[in-house]
Write a protein that binds this DNA or RNA. Structure first.
Lengths: 219, 219, 219, 219
DNA sequence: TATGAATGAGGTTTCATTCAT
DNA sequence: GATGAATGAAACCTCATTCAT
């Protein structure tokens, strides 16, 4: 019959253009105030009702936008989630790095790791809560990106725990120790409220004490 | 057990189901094989992809039904979730009761509580995993029902922990101890696999050791 | 309809069920009256305004349905297009087969091929018009299915044209002849109307005469 | 040329553009380089994916513009289509005029008409392909403008065909002859590629031969 | 001249739920 | 007990278009 098709589906352009990040100040939009607002709005909603039930409309409405406008800033709802979670994970990485830098003794390292993690979790940003609960809603590709960041956090903990074991402060498998500790900390998301009269620092101390034998000096 | 909820639950409930077997025509459909199949199917799906993304169609399909037929057994998708979670919570209650009954010493009590909780979590049933992650998707009314069951679990833990503290095995606030411990245990859902070469019993032992000073007897 | 099948999608389940086309009468729905109505409605709209501008809502409304209901019958808008086009292509195949069977002489074959093609094109069904104009909107995979059907049509024409050339009725490259002829016929879609006083049969005769030297007998 | 329209054109026009260069500030923007670039970009896109699927954004991107900027040059997406199609139609008119001027004999006229039409269709410009496929997407008012141009083309063909009939080279109704011929030629869009080893000139010759009886001496 | 930001209408698709049979 | 058909609300996303700058 003679119908062919010289169109080759989706991809159009031959010349295409891929034009010049140099025109506009590079990434001008990537940290525009509006974009940040949207991310914050999304983080809060994701935290409060979960990613699947947080609608694009709601996210937009919270910053006074129409739902369609969101897609000027993000390609996909899932992209927003990924970005929120990356932000959160980087906050954890940062908290870890700071803890390791500032601490002098193995015990101090643990204490600061505990406190830093809790602060990230219960601070002003909502992202960190999201990172714990929405993992499942990431596409495999996004998940892989997150895993790398998570591994960074883990290895900082392992480093500190190795020292603690060497110092005789704790005993047992480092990995299991980390898993137990982070479980305790992360679970605080389910119950901790600063209004309860227990400060983050106090909580960190109490939790550390559960794991670390109180040394002779303190006994 | 320590699940709270800072979640601002939207609008939910419609009619609110008549829940208990005893209300409706007794023993007619409430534990029919089909119904149990559906609950199991739902539990698995809820665990694997989460409640919001588990569709009624999928739940039905897994037992060879049409989606419409589900509503012969359940008034609402949320009713299914509630029932799954109640089942799970009762499993935790049961595990706790058994532990307290069988154990002789305070240390044994803790060990059995740890092991029982982990077994419930990683056993053959999928419900227990659901109870930890889908709290948010319960309507307020359902949530209240769950809270009561959770409180039962909590009080068993507290009982055991009081004894442990009295025995000098652990020190610190009982509530915080429980929260830390359950956090460690629940978090295992994120990483534990029986294929890893570590048995549930072993894991329980290791975790207990993290919290309980190895006593003189064992030293 | 049973489940089984070509669903490809995400796929959760482990056990899955893959249940028995034998329960329900196989393909019961595949030619339900409603489904056929939808296909007819789609064909008409595709023909009238083109696939991209024919909305699912419009297709549904034309048979008194809501847009969502369409997806009970078809997985995708594109699936509808594919099915419409396959129907059309099969009509062309059928027309060709009939022509070749009924005709005695080479000249008769051409005449019947012309007439059959034109009848398919301008008959009561709208599908055949669609097949000529919406090729571009098929996904590559669907396109491949169509190509096979198209090739069947082409080879019937080539068969007839070979004979015609052998008989000295026409001369030239068979493929180019086919392409020229089908071009003439297909283009009639742009201008032919039965109300114009020219019957399909007449038109076929005139067109054949353009291509075939009037034989000695007729001279 | 023979494009009609049984298409029931829905609602379209809004304000209806002021089209011709002479209306607006003369020679200011109407043939600016940018404008021409945009038209070329649009033509290519319209040809490759069709008018409805060619987005304003894509058209703009191909020339390194933002989508909003297009509306400085054109009032409406449909205006772009109209202009592209007018350009194309004028190319066909021009091809026809040239053919009639240069040819000496009736046969030569046909040959040049065929070749000119094919050249326009498969030359470097993408517009001519668009004119054949996007008729349906023109608003009624625009369509009327196009019809006039098309009629010019048609009458040139009719003129040549009258002579050909008078010369005994072809026989039959002039209008039907034109429709058959243009069908053959236009359909080449579906299958012809210059890479196939057949030049445009050759193709024109072959096609003419299909319609014109080769006289004994080639007389 | 052109951009960057946003709109708002509308597109396809999903899904819990209903109900006659 | 269960199905098949359908609903209707709402989800994500697209896109021509506007407009202040």
């Amino acid at each position: 019959m003679g119908l062919s098709a010289r169109d080759g589906g989706k991809a159009f352009g031959r010349g295409e253009a891929s034009r010049l990040a140099s025109y506009t100040s590079p990434m001008k939009m990537d940290d525009s105030a509006r974009r940040q607002e949207l991310l914050a709005s999304a983080a809060r909603l994701f935290r409060d009702v979960g990613y699947p039930r947080a609608t694009v409309r709601d996210i937009a409405k919270a910053v006074g936008m129409q739902s369609g406008s969101i897609f000027y800033y993000f390609k996909t709802k899932e992209d927003i989630l990924l970005e929120v979670m990356e932000t959160a994970m980087r906050a954890f990485v940062l908290a870890g790095q700071r803890a390791l830098e500032q601490a002098k003794t193995p015990r101090e390292k643990l204490r600061l790791l505990f406190a830093g993690h809790l602060e990230a979790l219960h601070g002003t940003r909502d992202e960190t809560a999201v990172v714990l609960s929405e993992w499942r809603n990431l596409a495999p590709k996004s998940r892989r990106r997150m895993v790398k960041l998570r591994d960074q956090v883990d290895s900082m903990w392992d480093e500190a725990l190795h020292e603690a074991v060497a110092a005789g402060m704790v005993q047992g498998d480092v990995r299991l120790l980390r898993l137990a500790m982070l479980g305790s900390l992360n679970w605080s998301l389910q119950w901790y409220s600063p209004k309860g009269g227990l400060s983050i620092q106090d909580l960190a101390d109490r939790f550390v004490d559960f794991y670390v034998d109180v040394g002779p000096a303190k006994r």
